[in-house]
C-alpha cells in the first residue's frame, strides 16, 4: 500500500469514527454475523480494522459515493 493510500485510509477511518462517536448511546447497529453493536463497539472494530470494521467503513464509503455521483438524490426523488 502506498503512503498516500495509507493516509487516505487513516483519514477515512477517522471520519467514520467521528460520525459514529456523534450518535446517541441508545442506538445499536446490527451488521454482519454478530450481535448488535453499540457505538463504542463500532469504533473498536473500525480502529481494529477487522472484518466488521471494514464492513462499517465500506458502508460509509458506498453511501458517500452514491451521494457524490448523484445516485442517492436521484433515487430519493424517484419515489
Amino acid at each position: 500500500m502506498t503512503e498516500e493510500n495509507k493516509e487516505i485510509n487513516e483519514e477515512l477511518r477517522d471520519v467514520v469514527i467521528m460520525r459514529i462517536d456523534a450518535i446517541p448511546s441508545n442506538l445499536r447497529l446490527s451488521i454482519g454475523s454478530e450481535e448488535s453493536l453499540n457505538k463504542e463497539q463500532m469504533i473498536y472494530h473500525v480502529r481494529k480494522g477487522d472484518e466488521t470494521g471494514r464492513q462499517i467503513i465500506n458502508s460509509h464509503l458506498s453511501f458517500m459515493k452514491a451521494i457524490a455521483r448523484g445516485e442517492f438524490t436521484k433515487a430519493l426523488a424517484s419515489v
Partner: peptide
Amino acid sequence: CGLKISPEIFKIAEALWNNYE
C-alpha cells in the same frame, strides 16, 4: 442534501441505503 440533520439521521440513512443497494 439541503437539509439540516442530526448525526444519527445520517447513520440511519446510510444503513437504509446499504440495504437498498
